[in-house]
């Protein structure tokens, strides 16, 4: 079953066109990696799906309903959660408060305790302001906050950015648990190897367009690399 369908989406910042006619869809339970160089439009595309950026044209369908004009906070209630690039925690709120401000309209297995079980590193930090946490801890809170709304679709924007490799491993191990439970995940990842490992399918963007997509297993690395840098356009 198709969970998310993006149809000919155009996103602009004034005169700058960040996303150009992008279409793709994600089936329920699938993990899809969005890759591409800086400025390819990945973050904008994710924000448009989450409702934080209003697209110029095109449509977004979620679970069979057209949500193009649904505001971001309502999409969280529908089951779309975005972990923003740069984590975007509320610095003066404690870890627990950061988790509990997230919409809890949707029922499911995620609450403060289950999130802390998946990210045990946060347990001793529970009552500390988010501003005092390390980068890896902050990233765990950011993912936890998204999980608190019990999303059907989890959007992850560069969760490994600025983190030490060991921390990235830990974050991805925890994500593995989440993905293993049948969540649908759309992730943006700079690290190609990791993207191909985690995702079942890969969409590669270049200058706002989708230039390559396919099963992660069937794509050979050279083709992905050339699409990534736009060395030669695949037919």
């Amino acid at each position: 079953m198709t969970l998310l369908q993006v149809e000919a989406l155009d996103c602009r910042y004034g005169l700058l066109q960040a996303v150009r006619g992008v279409s793709f869809d994600i089936a329920q339970g699938e993990t899809l990696a969005l890759i591409g160089a800086n400025g390819a439009g990945k973050t904008t595309l994710l924000r448009a799906i989450a409702g934080a950026h209003r697209p110029a044209t095109g449509r977004v369908w979620f679970a069979g309903a057209d949500i193009t004009h649904v505001p971001a906070h309502r999409r969280v209630e529908l089951g779309i959660a975005l972990v923003s690039e740069g984590r975007r925690l509320f610095p003066s709120l404690t870890v627990e408060e950061n988790l509990r401000v997230a919409s809890a309209r949707r029922r499911g297995r995620w609450n403060v305790d289950t999130v802390l079980d998946v990210f045990p590193l946060l347990k001793p930090r529970r009552h500390m302001p988010a501003a005092t946490l390390s980068g890896g801890e902050q990233q765990a809170v950011a993912i936890g906050r998204a999980l608190m709304s019990n999303p059907r679709l989890l959007l992850l924007d560069e969760v490994s950015l600025g983190l030490a490799p060991v921390v990235v491993d830990a974050v991805y191990r925890s994500l593995g648990d989440v993905i293993g439970e049948g969540a649908t995940v759309l992730l943006v990842e700079q690290d190609l190897t990791r993207a191909l490992q985690v995702a079942g399918r890969v969409v590669c963007m270049l200058e706002g367009r989708v230039v390559l997509q396919g099963e992660a297993a069937s794509l050979d690395r050279d083709r992905v690399v050339s699409a990534y840098f736009g060395l030669r356009r695949p037919a």
């Binding site: 505001p71 906070h73 209630e77 923003s84 509320f90 709120l93 509990r100 401000v101 919409s103 709304s149």
Partner: peptide
């Protein structure tokens, strides 16, 4: 109170608050 946290969260980062399901 949770309503108070929500108000502080929105004050600190309204965009992130919206993405956490808060109606700013």
């Amino acid at each position: 109170t949770r309503a108070g946290w929500i108000m502080r969260a929105t004050a600190e980062d309204a965009d992130a608050a919206e993405l956490a399901g808060i109606d700013s």
